[in-house]
């Protein structure tokens, strides 16, 4: 299988030779068994979830490594044996791993069709892309509720917002790329908004966390396609920021987990995926589960990115090149 790793893998590997772990932390259990998790979710957000899992499985230690979602593919390609479970917000890259045969099928894990793919990739959260604004910067101004409204506000006062806008650098962030491509697929408004952002010297970020930090400090006034859920984990920023879920459409991704086929601890890995997905399904705001659960009524909604082979399209080398070209011409001036 490794002979057929998608061309994009080496493209990424060559473009981003510095694919490396951002963080690594070991949660020590009572036994010798260690589950190695590679995740795109920050450790401080995920730690309560892991602790909940380890409370039920006290003999398991978890080696939790964090990398950018785009780097995860490279890390797996370089060393498929180094990890057991992959958790990522980049649904397309996760689906790609499963499509390329790297994910183990878990037939015992029964979940409804829309939240899993091929009994391999399992969604366990449902997180819309939001517009987050600094309340102070909007004093006396209308809060934008749609993309079109945001475009009008920005056009009305270009000098006020110049250099104060932020969004993902889709070249670096897998999740940013997923949000941007799905936005582009849904509406032309995305491109008009990006042109406005480009005209106003928008700042580009790797991660939602950095954008929220800069919004809280007043460095940024508006950030587009931010994970609203991240602000929930930073209560101290809440009163300074307003989180707006766009009313025209809210591209919503599922955070997904998969078990690598090469794992030696398949049962424990499956137990973790089971814990994640059951926690999501139960819809109980259980303490220590900081991410928004999947709403079964909502899981089939249009705005939720569906787990199907269509996700492979924007990972195509030519398609990606075309998209980045258009994105660059809109945003990078």
């Amino acid at each position: 299988m490794r002979n057929f790793i998608f061309v994009i893998a080496w493209l990424w590997a060559s473009a981003l030779s510095a694919a490396e772990l951002e963080d690594r932390q070991i949660f020590q259990g009572e036994g010798a068994l260690t589950l190695r998790v590679l995740s795109s979710t920050d450790t401080d957000i995920f730690a309560p979830i892991l602790e909940g899992f380890m409370a039920r499985n006290p003999t398991v230690s978890v080696d939790y490594a964090v990398a950018a979602s785009a780097d995860i593919v490279t890390l797996i390609a370089e060393c498929p044996d180094c990890f057991d479970v992959v958790i990522s917000s980049a649904m397309d890259l996760q689906l790609k791993l499963a499509n390329d045969g790297l994910a183990r099928r878990l037939p015992g894990l029964v979940r409804t069709g829309g939240t899993q793919w091929r009994q391999s990739v399992f969604g366990f959260t449902q997180e819309p892309a939001t517009i987050v604004v600094n309340r102070a910067a909007f004093a006396g101004r209308d809060m934008p509720t749609t993309r079109q409204a945001l475009i009008e506000i920005l056009r009305a006062e270009p000098d006020h917002f110049r250099g104060r806008l932020g969004t993902y650098d889709v070249r670096l962030s897998g999740l940013g790329y997923l949000y941007a491509t799905q936005d582009a697929r849904t509406s032309e408004t995305f491109w008009r908004l990006m042109e406005v952002f480009g005209n106003l010297n928008a700042q580009l970020y790797c991660c939602s966390g950095d954008m929220i930090d800069d919004l809280a400090s007043g460095e940024l006034y508006v950030a587009y396609n931010v994970l609203g859920s991240y602000t929930q984990t930073r209560p101290e920023t809440l009163d300074k920021l307003a989180i707006i879920t766009p009313e025209d459409f809210a591209t919503t991704m599922m955070r997904t987990a998969l078990v690598l086929d090469t794992t030696d601890v398949g049962e424990t890995a499956e137990a973790l995926v089971r814990y994640l997905t059951s926690g999501a399904w139960a819809m109980q705001e259980r303490p220590g589960f900081p991410l928004p659960s999947i709403d079964p009524a909502d899981a089939q909604a249009l705005d939720v990115v569906s787990l199907d082979p269509g996700l492979l399209v924007y990972l195509d080398r030519l398609k990606r090149a075309l998209f980045l070209e258009a994105w660059g011409s809109a945003l990078l001036r």
Binding site: N99, R118, D308, P309, L311, V313, K319, L322
Partner: peptide, 22 residues
């Protein structure tokens, strides 16, 4: 040659058994 792969080209290959696509 430039190919702007349509989203539907792969999305239409979605099946009940989630078949892999190459």
């Amino acid at each position: 040659v430039e190919v702007d792969v349509p989203y539907a080209a792969f999305a239409m290959l979605d099946t009940a058994a989630d078949d892999r696509v190459f």
